[in-house]
Design a protein around this nucleic acid. Structure first.
Length: 610
DNA sequence: AAAAAAT
């Protein structure tokens, strides 16, 4: 491939797609806790009053009662939904029997006055029509290798129609313009609907959130009405917990989940640090079925006894490998194992990530019972949607080299619009300093990292998404999971020390089947990455510079090598590893998976995928 | 060594 000239074109093409991003609903996303359409707070002493007496003023627009639109009669969903009505005061409003979950009044605010999460999308859809939604490049998802292992794997489906998700959810799927399931959805949804635990390797941007949300929402809708346990009146009992490693990712999952659960009666609440806790507590008090959270804030809520995990039926860890790495593992273990969450086998557990190192899989298996491992080929790299380039740049030359890239990109840009460029650096200080330097040199930039206030972080993300500052300098806080449409170029100004982090970073471009460009600056400091980087690029059919191959040949870099020889997959079931099978007595001692696959997978099966 | 995540 002749990437030498194509990279600028790529960026320029993406720049053309960028026109008009200002109307993106992402602007709304960050305002989820302060939006204009939010109903006024009703003080607790007013909540017990009968619906007929002095109802709150109706919202200015929208349906008076979303229940009217639920079409109760004749639906096979009528029964669970009616049950749900009785439940909707559950947890939040103190579980008052027959309380304000009634169908007729305006008191069940969580439903009757549910803010339409699709409300602002109309403009966006018009601006982007073909590109953003309808034209998700599904062809790019065809022929992607998929690998499953485990006991009695349910067969995949080819259409949403084959899956019994229910009317309300199907309507939301149509509203989201999802035409057919992505590969991870085709496999993961039936597995999850069958009640099985799941460890899934799939790149974000391939429909991962929906893959674990649809079964959760559907399961809550048709599941039994929970009985509120005896607890402090202000404790709430979510039925599903979704954990993610960064605040912005939790916000994003929340926004997406709200769309999927719109008018299903299933309530989604998000809780994360850096934001006032009181508003989050109020949201929880209004009722919560699905709680999306970052670990720190959740631990806080658990210790305050404002949340109990006793009723959890579904646990999902997004970016699960990050959640279980050294920094996070104790907190996650506390939440999952040392609070009041039901054990594996009782709850249903789903772990998702684009990468799943073997050691992490071993840790993760503590949380799972007789699980199915699912690996979906990398959408981006394996289909050349992301063009990866690596350039040898000395530390002292990095800034001027970046400037060259940006100038070329600007020259090729359409209508003066600059392509969105995400620049990853190693440190928070480095991020601030590079941002300042870029601004001084005529390139509007902003930055996101852990030393900034949450407000600043969210503002930076908005400003980047809208194109106001088309350059975002970021630490690894932005490496994982964030879905930022129209990122044309990811620059690894400083390479990470872990090849998996590289995979996550470049995954911020080339999303939803679009093309993207990833440029890495490499020098002697990155010697330990040479081998893994060269291997990865080769696997993805990228042009590997000769100098990098030479580097790789003489570097040791054992830590970054992919065990098991890599292959086209982001991961491979560690249970199938022959070395593990021989030496894995500790694992079988756990008793989690006795009889499932024991010994069934060894060299011959594994070799089919090598 | 760095980043993230509660106050």
């Amino acid at each position: 491939m002749t990437t030498r000239t194509s990279w600028a074109d790529l960026a320029a093409n993406s720049a053309a797609e960028n026109v008009g991003v200002g109307s993106s609903d992402s602007n709304k996303a960050a305002g989820s806790t302060s939006g204009g359409g939010r109903p006024a707070y009703v003080p607790p002493h007013l909540r017990n009053r009968p619906p007929s007496a002095d109802p709150p003023a109706p919202t200015s627009s929208g349906p008076a009662s979303s229940n009217d639109r639920l079409g109760q009669g004749g639906s096979r969903w009528a029964a669970p939904r009616n049950d749900y009505n009785n439940r909707s005061g559950y947890g939040g409003s103190g579980g008052r029997p027959g309380g304000w979950g009634g169908r007729s009044g305006g008191w069940d605010r969580g439903r009757d006055r549910e803010v339409n999460p699709f409300g602002n999308d109309d403009d966006t859809e018009q601006a982007f029509s073909e590109q953003e939604n309808t034209a998700i490049n599904f062809d790019a998802y065809e022929d992607i290798p998929v690998d499953t292992s485990g006991d009695n794997v349910p067969p995949p489906v080819n259409t949403f129609a084959e899956i019994d998700l229910g009317e309300a959810l199907n309507l939301n799927i149509r509203r989201c313009k999802y035409v057919k399931p992505t590969p991870v959805q085709r496999y993961a949804i039936p597995i999850s609907l069958a009640g099985r635990d799941l460890m899934a390797c799939a790149q974000t941007g391939s429909g991962k959130t929906a893959a674990f949300c649809f079964p959760i929402i559907s399961g809550i809708m048709r599941g039994p009405v929970p009985q509120k346990p005896v607890r402090g009146a202000r404790t709430v009992f979510p039925l599903a917990l979704i954990l993610s490693p960064t605040r912005e990712l939790s916000m994003q999952i929340h926004e997406e989940t709200r769309k999927f659960s719109y008018q299903t009666g299933v309530k989604v609440v998000v809780a994360y640090g850096g934001a006032p806790i009181n508003q989050q507590l109020r949201e929880l008090e209004r009722g919560v079925d699905i709680l999306v959270a970052t670990p720190g804030r959740l631990v806080d809520l658990l210790e305050r006894a404002r949340v109990s995990l006793q009723m959890i039926r579904y646990l999902a860890l997004d970016e699960a490998d990050r959640m279980l790495d050294m920094g996070f593992e104790p907190q996650i273990r506390k939440i999952v194992e040392q609070m009041d969450m039901p054990p594996p086998g009782v709850r249903q557990t789903m772990l998702f990530s684009a990468t799943f190192p073997r050691e992490i899989q071993r840790l993760a298996s503590d949380f799972l019972a007789n699980y199915i491992f699912l690996a979906v080929g990398r959408v981006g790299s394996s289909t050349d949607l992301i063009v990866q380039r690596v350039e040898f740049v000395q530390e002292s030359d990095k800034r001027s080299h970046l400037m060259d890239l940006l100038h070329a990109q600007r020259a090729n840009g359409a209508q003066g619009k600059q392509a969105l460029t995400l620049v990853f650096v190693e440190t928070k200080k480095g991020a601030d300093s590079l941002e300042h330097w870029l601004c001084m040199n005529g390139f509007p930039a902003t930055t996101i990292h852990g030393d900034r206030s949450q407000q600043e972080r969210e503002q930076a993300l908005r400003s980047f998404k809208s194109g106001t500052t088309p350059i975002l300098v970021a630490t690894d806080v932005a490496a994982r999971g964030l879905d930022i449409p129209h990122v044309a170029h990811v620059v690894n100004f400083d390479l990470p020390n872990d090849i998996d982090d590289y995979v996550h970073r470049i995954g911020r471009t080339g999303r939803a089947g679009k093309t993207g460009l990833a440029t890495a600056f490499f020098n002697d400091n990155n010697a330990s990455m040479a081998k893994s980087l060269a291997d990865l690029m080769q696997e993805a059919n990228q042009e590997v510079p000769a100098w990098l191959t030479r580097y790789a040949a003489r570097s040791f870099g054992g830590r970054n090598r992919r065990p098991g020889g890599g292959g086209r997959f982001g991961g491979r079931d560690f249970r199938r590893d022959s070395s593990f099978n021989r030496g894995g007595s500790d694992y079988y001692g756990g008793g989690n998976n006795a009889g499932g696959y024991g010994g069934g997978y060894s060299a011959n099966v594994a070799s089919a995928w090598d």
